[in-house]
C-alpha cells in the first residue's frame, strides 16, 4: 500500500512536475511511513522490557528475586498476568513492604496494570519477580531467560542479568528503591501521562 502510494506520488510528480505538489507528496509519504511504523509497533503491542536484573544467590538459597522495567509505548493498557522461568519450579510477581520494621511479602493480588505511556517498575523494596524452588543458582555474570505473560501482548521473552551482591547493592542505591517512601500503594499513579515521565505507574487495580 505504501509502495503504491509512493509510485502514485512519483507518477503525479512526473506528470505535474509542480514545485507545490512534490513536497506535499513527500509529506503524505512521511505521514504514511509514520503510521506504518506505529502500526508495526502496535503489532508488537507496544511493550518494551528493559533493565532486567537479578541478585546472585548463595548455594543454599531456594529463592531469588528479579527486577525489570516494562514501558507501554502502545495505545492500549495491558496487564502482566504471569512470569515463567525454567530455572525455577515456581515464579510469581510479588510485592514487598516494610511495615513497622516487619518485612511483609505477598504475591500480587491482581495482575499489574500498565496504562499506555506508563512505566511499570519492579525494583528492590517493592514489586519483584520471585523465583521459587530454584533448580539452578543465580550466578553473577550469567543471564537468566524468562518469559513474561501479558493479557494483550501475550508471551514476551526477557533476560535478567545476574549481578554480584556488591553490584546489586550499587544498583539498589542508584535505582532509588521504594524504601522510605511509605506505603507503596499510596504513591502509585495510573498511567496515561506522557512517555518520558519517570514516576511509578503500576497499579493494583
Amino acid at each position: 500500500m505504501t509502495l503504491k502510494l509512493t509510485q502514485g506520488c512519483l507518477r503525479s510528480m512526473k506528470q505535474l512536475s509542480s514545485h507545490m505538489i512534490a513536497p506535499l507528496c513527500g509529506l503524505v509519504f512521511a505521514v504514511f511511513l509514520g503510521l506504518f511504523i506505529s502500526a508495526l509497533a502496535d503489532g508488537m503491542n507496544g511493550l518494551r522490557i528493559k533493565d532486567g536484573w537479578s541478585r546472585e544467590t548463595t548455594a543454599g538459597a531456594r529463592v531469588g528475586g528479579g527486577y525489570l522495567t516494562v514501558m507501554n509505548h502502545g495505545q492500549v493498557p495491558d496487564r502482566l498476568l504471569a512470569v515463567r522461568a525454567e530455572h525455577a519450579g515456581m515464579s510469581e510477581v510479588h510485592t514487598m513492604a516494610m511495615q513497622d520494621d516487619v518485612m511483609v511479602m505477598r504475591p500480587v493480588e491482581e495482575p499489574l496494570l500498565i496504562e499506555p505511556g506508563a512505566i511499570l517498575e519492579l525494583r528492590p523494596g517493592g514489586l519483584h519477580l520471585m523465583f521459587m524452588q530454584l533448580n539452578q543458582q543465580h550466578v553473577a555474570g550469567e543471564m537468566l531467560d524468562i518469559v513474561l505473560v501479558f493479557e494483550r501482548a501475550g508471551e514476551l521473552d526477557a533476560t535478567l542479568e545476574v549481578l554480584s551482591m556488591r553490584d546489586s547493592m550499587d544498583r539498589m542505591r542508584n535505582s532509588g528503591d521504594h524504601m522510605g517512601h511509605g506505603d507503596q500503594a499510596s504513591h502509585d499513579k495510573n498511567g496515561g501521562a506522557n512517555d518520558d515521565h519517570n514516576d511509578e505507574s503500576h497499579s493494583h487495580k
Binding site: 543454599g60 538459597a61 514487598m96 511479602m105 519483584h128 551482591m165 546489586s168
Partner: peptide, 14 residues
C-alpha cells in the same frame, strides 16, 4: 530465613 529474596541476603551482605 533463607527463602527470602531481598531483605535477608541484603542484610547479611551489609
Amino acid at each position: 530465613f533463607t527463602q527470602c529474596p531481598e531483605i535477608c541476603p541484603v542484610s547479611l551482605f551489609e
